[in-house]
């Protein structure tokens, strides 16, 4: 565990907590894409299958359980408890356009043709694109609440920090995983436009508003 990896995980954890608190405190999930949240639930479920048969560390198990339960809780809050506040008119991204191609890609390009390995690879590919419905929603409405921007910033930073962690691990441990690295790069690049707006607008106290 290096500092980049730890900061990445904490950033990821912070993003999830921000989102849950926002929904809980405001009793509303307006501006949040339920489609992205469903994709994240699929990502964690298919990635953390090893939770039942592989023990890595207490930290690893703990974080996996937190990510899984927080993600299912978010989906529950959005589609059940606070359903009335869900922006379904704007959340129109077709998730099958992400799920099916990433699944086919995982079948074709993986480390090992086993069920668990293909599902892990699928989760990595899908995660890299899972934020697209959320970014699509923001671009459709043309704005995002500050709290939603903080959520997106923390969530985007997490994979960026993982990239630094992978550079570190390559040199320090001779460890690298090309599938994770390429997908992580794609994932981080998708946030670049948002990072720019976040730094130039939200951090200066302005609302994140896209040019008309």
């Amino acid at each position: 565990m290096n500092i980049f990896r730890l900061l990445g995980d904490l950033s990821h954890l912070l993003a999830i907590i921000i989102l849950l608190l926002k929904i809980w405190k405001t009793r509303s999930c307006a501006g949040i894409s339920g489609k992205s949240q469903i994709l994240f639930a699929i990502v964690y479920t298919t990635r953390y299958l090893d939770l039942v048969n592989t023990y890595i560390s207490a930290y690893n198990t703990f974080m996996k359980i937190i990510f899984l339960s927080a993600s299912y809780t978010t989906v529950y809050l959005m589609y059940m408890k606070f359903k009335a506040t869900y922006d379904h008119n704007h959340d129109t991204f077709r998730i099958e356009f992400l799920v099916l191609p990433t699944f086919v890609l995982a079948l074709l390009i993986n480390h090992e043709p086993s069920v668990v390995e293909v599902l892990w690879t699928f989760s990595i590919y899908l995660e890299s694109l899972a934020i697209l419905p959320q970014l699509f929603l923001v671009s459709k409405t043309g704005e995002a609440e500050s709290i939603t921007s903080h959520y997106l910033f923390a969530l985007g930073s997490y994979r960026g920090l993982y990239l630094l962690n992978w550079v570190y691990r390559y040199y320090a441990e001779d460890h690298y995983d090309l599938i994770a690295i390429v997908a992580g790069l794609v994932q981080t690049v998708l946030y670049c436009d948002f990072f720019y707006l976040y730094i130039t607008k939200v951090l200066k106290g302005k609302k994140l508003q896209l040019p008309a």
Partner: peptide
């Protein structure tokens, strides 16, 4: 590299 398949990351 033998630990490629040890998924110690999240």
């Amino acid at each position: 590299i033998d630990d490629v398949n040890l998924k110690d990351e999240l």
